[in-house]
Design a protein around this nucleic acid. Sequence first.
DNA 1: TTCATTTCTTAATGTACATCAAGTGCCCAT
DNA 2: ATGGGCACTTGATGTACATTAAGAAATGAA
Lengths: 194, 194
Amino acid sequence: MSFNLILQNIAKHINLTKHEQEVFIGYLQAKTIKRKQFLLTDGDISKHSIFVTAGCLRGYTVDKSGIEHVLSFAPPDWWIADMYSLISQKPGILNIEALEDTEVLLLSKVNQEKLYLEIPKFEHFFRILIENSLVSSQQRLIDGLSLTAEERYNNFCKRYPTLIDHLPQKQIASYIGVTPEFFSRMRGEMIKRR
Amino acid sequence: MSFNLILQNIAKHINLTKHEQEVFIGYLQAKTIKRKQFLLTDGDISKHSIFVTAGCLRGYTVDKSGIEHVLSFAPPDWWIADMYSLISQKPGILNIEALEDTEVLLLSKVNQEKLYLEIPKFEHFFRILIENSLVSSQQRLIDGLSLTAEERYNNFCKRYPTLIDHLPQKQIASYIGVTPEFFSRMRGEMIKRR
DNA sequence: TTCATTTCTTAATGTACATCAAGTGCCCAT
DNA sequence: ATGGGCACTTGATGTACATTAAGAAATGAA
């Protein structure tokens, strides 16, 4: 059943009774998105946390010269959201797009807050989830300041091993913070060297 | 009394009874650190969340060529921690140093977890605290990818208005991710231009 | 298949920063 | 006062990346 993945994801940090599982699942909304369609575009007020069960999403911003910067990829078993907009309920800056046909489960902000009240374990779960996001966000900040593009690429390969083959190079380039042209050249040199 | 600041800080998100306040305060440990002394150095396993009541701390990492990168400043009313090490209980990479004589309140990981169990509102409080950290960390990531050093400096000025005057330039340079030399030049040009 | 679109590569040139090196001013300890 | 450190400045040079432009290769739609 399509809820197994999300229940296992949650079971990594908290244990739910059968009844709690049912309540939780009742709060979810399944949705499928075609490749290149958007779950969220900048300017929207974000209403949902998103959990990917199949396919892959990317979250990115567009800067004032029109360049896209990928903040995160979300393959199956990952959560993604525009935290800024979701928390503040102001228009956000994130675009969330399907890189391929994708299936997601949506947890609305309203339902998420109900969960916190009805089943406090969920507050525990999401605290841990966000703590882990914070740690990787900070690590990426440090990496951006102290590593070369090549070292950041190597980190990326370790972090998203499943994605490397099956993601356009320009998306990876954007994630590690270089242009597709530079990334292509860099890759060429890395291959030549070994 | 020296606990007012932290109680007000917490009151921004949750309401505590008198008794809960007392329990909480009982879990805190006050400490003073002299300028240039450290609360944490890289390689340590972090045991505490830190709340600053007076003075100022900086959290920074040192990369493999010996260059320091400031991750955050902590003036009064701010929390700071090595989240990675605190969560994983593995040796961390953060150094936390006093930029001037500083007073802090320490909340040990053990006590923090007791709080979560005894007064679940604290799980709510820290979830929100960490959500906000995550939002600023992600914003800083985006800024690093899409803004010039000068724009990042302007953002810094808005974000830490109290700190600008009273912080050595090289610390600000490190925070926005440039060398002190470049920062000096840049500032010179900004002043000349207006 | 075929055409159109997107992705990837290659090359020339440009630029925002870093690095290295000296020198200046300032604090503060003796 | 004085000398040693530290923060800051200034200049010359270096480099990791970006930008622009073009063509080749892969992908997808009809």
